[in-house]
């Protein structure tokens, strides 16, 4: 790969006390491509994303975005970098105290790129991109269904036109049809923005729909990476067991009897 990866992780490690969550993670994410990180519950997926975003400091290793080591950036440069990143959290993480339109335009308002009067129009535009009516903007997040909350969270993630978007289990808790709708919206939004997408999921249907590339993390290590098209027939025993949902294989669930 000659082009500089959009995101390059090298030797990323993180422990919480005795518990090792990430152990020397190496991973490249190609610019304007969609990477899907697969892994079971507790495999370190969410911690990895939080380390990339700087929400959790890694113990060692490097996180490079556009060739810049994020941990060496000054506070201002790191803030400027975060300005270019969008994130869709697993449960939406919408702000309960604000109406939907203010949630959607929160970043634009925080950066003073827009007035409060203009924010309603901008929110309506972003909501339309995820298939929601402008009137939804006047509701509070508590009044929305799970699927609508995900769509609003997606609208918030794309409203500031980021060039990297992270998706944390975007279809978790949704029915299969709504999951497919959200995946379709993610693909459309990422393509429209020309952004790089990094998703973490254990929903294989979703992974196949939204991913160009895929990687598998197990016990804090990347055990396989390759094309998302090959999921289920990668030749890697762990990745194939996970993708095919097989009980027998190298990955053993730790069950107490």
């Amino acid at each position: 790969m000659s082009e500089t990866p959009k995101i390059r992780l090298r030797g990323l490690s993180k422990s919480f006390g005795e518990k090792v969550v990430l152990e020397g993670v190496d991973l490249d994410v190609r610019a304007r491509h969609s990477m899907v990180l697969l892994g079971g519950s507790g495999s370190g997926k969410s911690v990895l994303v939080k380390c990339i975003l700087g929400l959790i400091p890694p113990d060692s290793g490097t996180v490079e975005i556009d060739g810049q080591d994020v941990r060496r950036l000054s506070g201002r440069d790191r803030a400027a970098l975060l300005d270019r990143i969008g994130m869709l959290f697993q449960n939406g993480a919408l702000f309960d105290s604000l109406p939907v339109w203010e949630n959607v335009c929160f970043k634009l308002l925080a950066q003073k790129r827009i007035t409060r009067r203009g924010a309603r129009d901008a929110a309506a535009e972003a909501l339309a991109q995820v298939g929601l009516a402008a009137s939804v903007g006047e509701l509070s997040p508590a009044e929305l269904s799970g699927g609508m909350q995900k769509r609003v969270a997606l609208a918030r993630a794309i409203a500031a036109r980021p060039d990297i978007i992270f998706f944390d289990e975007p279809t978790t808790g949704l029915d299969p049809i709504m999951g497919a709708v959200i995946d379709g919206l993610i693909v459309d939004c990422v393509e429209r923005l020309g952004a790089t997408a990094f998703s973490i999921t254990h929903d294989m249907a979703s992974a196949r729909r939204i991913g160009d590339d895929a990687a598998m993390i197990h016990k804090g290590r990347i055990v396989w990476s390759g094309s998302a098209e090959t999921l289920g027939r990668t030749g890697n025993a762990m990745a194939d067991q996970f993708a095919n949902g097989e009980r027998e294989g190298p990955i053993q669930m730790e069950l107490r009897r």
Partner: peptide
């Protein structure tokens, strides 16, 4: 519910 992390990702 990750709203504090969300604030950070929203430049706040």
């Amino acid at each position: 519910t990750d709203q504090i992390d969300a604030l950070r990702t929203l430049s706040t």
